[in-house]
């Protein structure tokens, strides 16, 4: 069984996302370690892309800050090496497919293996295009995480049967970012997924408060939070560790109460 799937065996999971290189990679290292220490179960590291079409303003702006600060893939790999000296928390790279295509699928996933990055998520690689990525990732033992959205409907079966690691359930229509309500058919979507797979389902997009994390985890196996984390970094810049740590502790607690 994959290490990512294993994470959900004992309890529900809290999965924060952080944009790499914002404000700089030294702080990405510090913040990932702080979130791991505070109880995060898996951490998604976002590789910034110039044109993040699935993101709302918070992650768009963080991506641009990181790129303007001179983000380079090789420097990120060095940063993850430093993270790996201190923690073995499961890590995932999340990004748009072009930077990975450009780097070369083989070289990229080989590096993931070396860095013990267990999973990969790309919002612009749906089921139809998954194979060209997954057959290389599989060679290096990296799970390609599939997304299922409120509009997936009759697509759920094929996606769920082919999924690995866990399933990223998109909470609502539209792009990433905090919101006050979620898709009304979320529970039904998760029940449908469970007909076809035993893999855990974590819900993401729009979750920011402990109550939301608890609500979402009560119908699934965990909560994924991006924009709310990235917003703390945007606000506190190089001094975000205490606030991130407190936020992750609070959210983890809420997920465990679900």
């Amino acid at each position: 069984m994959s290490k990512l799937t294993d994470c959900f065996k004992e309890h529900k999971c809290f999965i924060p996302f952080i944009t790499a290189g914002d404000p700089d990679l030294d702080h990405t290292v510090e913040y990932v370690l702080a979130m791991a220490e505070a109880g995060a179960d898996i951490i998604e590291i976002g590789i910034p892309f110039s044109d993040p079409t699935a993101e709302g303003p918070v992650i768009q702006e963080a991506s641009l800050r990181a790129l303007e600060a001179g983000f380079k893939m090789e420097n990120l790999f060095d940063a993850v090496r430093r993270i790996r000296e201190k923690t073995d928390i499961p890590l995932i790279f999340m990004t748009y497919i072009n930077p990975v295509f450009h780097y070369g699928y083989d070289a990229f996933f080989q590096t993931c293996k070396e860095l013990k990055v267990e999973g990969f998520i790309s919002p612009d690689v749906p089921f139809e295009e998954k194979r060209e990525v997954a057959e290389v990732a599989r060679k290096y033992g990296v799970d390609v995480i599939s997304l299922i959205s409120p509009t997936s409907e009759d697509r759920i079966e094929q996606i769920a049967r082919d999924a690995e690691g866990y399933i990223y359930v998109v909470s609502s229509m539209g792009v990433t970012g905090e919101r006050s309500s979620f898709s009304s058919n979320l529970k039904e979507t998760i029940e449908t997924i469970r007909k076809y797979t035993d893999l855990p389902c974590a819900v993401g997009f729009g979750i920011s408060t402990p109550q939301q994390a608890k609500d979402m985890s009560s119908i699934s196996d965990g909560a994924i939070v991006g924009s709310a984390i990235v917003k703390i970094v945007a606000r506190d810049g190089k001094n975000a560790a205490p606030a991130l740590s407190a936020y992750v502790k609070e959210m983890k607690q809420a997920v465990l109460e679900a």
């Binding site: 919002p123 749906p126 295009e129 409907e153």
Partner: peptide, 22 residues
């Protein structure tokens, strides 16, 4: 290889949310 290809070009590299609409 997915549908809508011109040689190796084309395809449907888009978010899951839009796939059923496509």
């Amino acid at each position: 290889m997915s549908k809508g290809r011109f040689g190796r070009f084309g395809g449907q590299y888009i978010s899951e949310t839009l796939m059923n609409e496509l």
